[in-house]
Design a protein around this nucleic acid. Structure first.
Length: 294
DNA sequence: CCACTAACCTGTAGGC
DNA sequence: TGCCTACAGGTTAGTG
């Protein structure tokens, strides 16, 4: 489900309700999601106060008073919501009375000023997972990640170093979390369209012999930053089932230039192209064959 | 190390 | 209506 902008939207929705709250009880309705919960997971959360809610790439990071960090990845269909009608619009899967068979984790909290809250993690496909660690470098999920695309360490020079000599298509390179962390299938297509780069182009072709980024790669770095920033500002994209923690939906999907727009006219000013769909590494890629040359 | 595939699991949309 | 297929925002494990 969620790429960086959607996870950031979830983080922003949760933070005001979680920060400062004490975790009273954690119920796991099964022993695993994509992977088993770590040993003693629930017990390690219980009794803790949440100091802050952060994010790294597509990972939510809930920092606890014990110094440990509760990591949560939403996979494709993971979602958080609060029970008991705290919000006007419940997640579409979970209208009152609807089945709750995908509610896998239930967290009872007491928030100073907001009182008792029940946070629920639901995940139909169970591609999500959770972890608990003391130091970020101890988490296998975080240790290999590339730079945050909206952080200072991310720029065209940085990308050039990672792309140099790579034969893999640029779309695959953008999806590689070791190269840049947080881009997924939607925003990879969108960023490439903004930079007018063909998704099949070998990543190495965007790097000059000197190792400097090409002008196109400069455009791509800009495209990544701007599309992610705009998507966050729009509250993420709502396809199928994505919901922010308050049950609301993002609206960036209305601003997709190419994603899921096969057969529609290319929105690039003056371009006469029609958006095409191809499959790369088993996943859909959308692009304009006319304005996305190399 | 690189590139690619299959696998994980459930739900939904579309064709017949 | 039912049945069948294709596809879905992600990541890891296994193969050459």
């Amino acid at each position: 489900m969620p790429e960086l902008p959607e996870v950031e939207t979830v983080r922003r929705g949760l933070a005001p309700y979680l920060e400062g709250a004490r975790i009273d009880k954690v119920t796991l309705n099964r022993k695993d999601l994509r992977f088993p919960f770590p040993r003693g997971f629930a017990a390690a959360l219980e009794g803790q106060t949440i100091t802050s809610v952060g994010r790294r790439a597509k990972y939510l990071l809930v920092h606890l008073s014990s110094g440990k960090t509760w990591l949560s990845h939403l996979g494709m269909t993971g979602a958080y919501r609060f029970a008991e009608g705290k919000f006007k619009e419940p997640s579409r899967y979970y209208e009152p009375g609807e089945d709750v068979k995908h509610d896998h984790v239930v967290v009872h909290l007491t928030h100073p000023g907001r009182g008792k809250l029940t946070l629920i993690y639901a995940d139909a496909r169970r591609f999500g997972f959770m972890d608990l660690f003391e130091h970020e470098e101890d988490s296998p999920y975080l240790s290999g990640l590339g730079p945050e695309p909206l952080g200072n360490a991310f720029n065209a020079e940085e990308m050039a170093q990672r792309f140099k000599g790579k034969a893999a298509p640029i779309k695959a390179a953008l999806l590689d979390q070791r190269v840049v962390a947080g881009i997924g299938n939607i925003y990879a297509s969108e960023a490439l369209h903004r930079a007018h780069i063909r998704p099949t182009a070998p990543a190495g072709k965007l790097v000059l012999k000197s190792g400097k980024p090409s002008a196109r790669l400069d455009l791509l770095a800009d495209g990544v930053r701007t599309v992610l920033t705009e998507a966050i500002d729009a509250g993420g994209s709502t396809l199928r089932d994505f919901r922010a923690a308050d049950g609301g939906s993002g609206y960036f999907q209305h601003r997709f230039a190419v994603y899921d727009r096969e057969g529609e006219p290319c929105p690039t000013p003056g371009c006469t192209g029609t958006i095409a769909r191809i499959v790369q590494s088993g996943r859909s890629t959308f692009f304009c064959p006319v304005c996305q040359k190399l």
